[in-house]
């Protein structure tokens, strides 16, 4: 309500090794909202995320950020854009040879002129925010999976990003820790006014945090809207996803037998 689109995906196509994996993706990401991109594994959501954070090259006129064409960013513009972003990767992506506090300090030391003491206090604030105030001196290997995830989020927040991308926040977490992380994501939106994009296939988490949901399937957007609008969707694939119904396997028997027999099509293959 009343939120402008900070990022506008306007006809994004993407390929890997000549194979198209995203097809004419179109949606807006409103500022200070939580947009959740969901869909089954392999539907293209991580590829979409890679385009949005500038890790995969985007052709011109396919993604606009604040009205600027991401596909036309030069190196400096891309660097400036990335400085506005925080990214929590699925793995947490912490440096294993550094303590948790040192991990959080890295982007601040690289990108700012702040004193070591200011950085130390900032790291403590972020750790406290994530419930890890006691663990700054720990190495990532000494933390549980849930704590590593939270430490990764603390590092993603190090630069006070305007836009936060979170890839599969709940994966590998127990339900209580996952719910805690969801609550924190909501708190970041409400308190810091962050624009947050979450990629997940966890339905419960998606509906808990989303202001807006994007449902993807096979490289396309199936549905987009508020959680209530998605729940009311009559699209078969959306319903199948929401009701967690398994796919009826579409097996190309002829193709399979052809391959196993050495490209010789069998008469019985269908």
């Amino acid at each position: 309500m009343g939120h402008r689109d900070l990022i506008d995906v306007c006809g994004l196509n993407s390929h890997y090794s000549g194979r198209q994996v995203l097809f004419d993706i179109r949606f807006g990401i409103p500022d200070t909202n939580i947009t959740v991109i969901m869909g089954v594994s392999g539907c293209g959501k991580t590829t979409l995320l890679r385009h949005l954070i500038g890790l995969k090259r985007t052709r011109p006129e396919q993604i606009m950020v604040d009205g600027q064409d991401l596909g036309k960013f030069n190196e400096e513009e891309m660097r400036n854009y990335r400085r506005r972003l925080g990214v929590l990767f699925q793995s947490g992506a912490l440096f294993n040879s550094m303590t948790v506090s040192q991990n959080i300090a890295v982007p601040l030391k690289v990108h700012t002129r702040l004193s070591d003491e200011t950085i130390r206090i900032m790291a403590l604030i972020k750790l406290n925010l994530l419930g890890l105030a006691e663990f700054g001196a720990f190495m990532p290997s000494q933390l549980s999976g849930g704590m590593r995830k939270r430490a990764g989020l603390a590092r993603a927040l190090a630069m006070d990003p305007e836009i936060l991308f979170v890839d599969e926040p709940s994966s590998g977490l127990d339900p209580i820790t996952a719910a805690g992380l969801d609550r924190l994501i909501l708190e970041l939106r409400d308190t810091l006014g962050m624009t947050i994009i979450v990629v997940t296939h966890e339905l419960e988490s998606a509906f808990r945090i989303a202001d807006r949901l994007i449902v993807m399937d096979r490289g396309c957007i199936l549905a987009a809207g508020s959680p209530d609008e998605i729940r009311a969707s009559q699209n078969e694939r959306v319903l199948q996803f929401l009701e967690r119904k398994a796919d009826t396997a579409e097996i190309n028997t002829a193709g399979y037998l052809s391959r196993i027999m050495g490209n010789e099509i069998t008469r019985s293959g269908r």
Binding site: T112, L114, T118, I119, I121, M122, I125, K126, D160
Partner: peptide, 11 residues
Amino acid sequence: LDTSGVAMLVE
């Protein structure tokens, strides 16, 4: 005001 400002206030 961001967290670097808050950290400065702490100092």
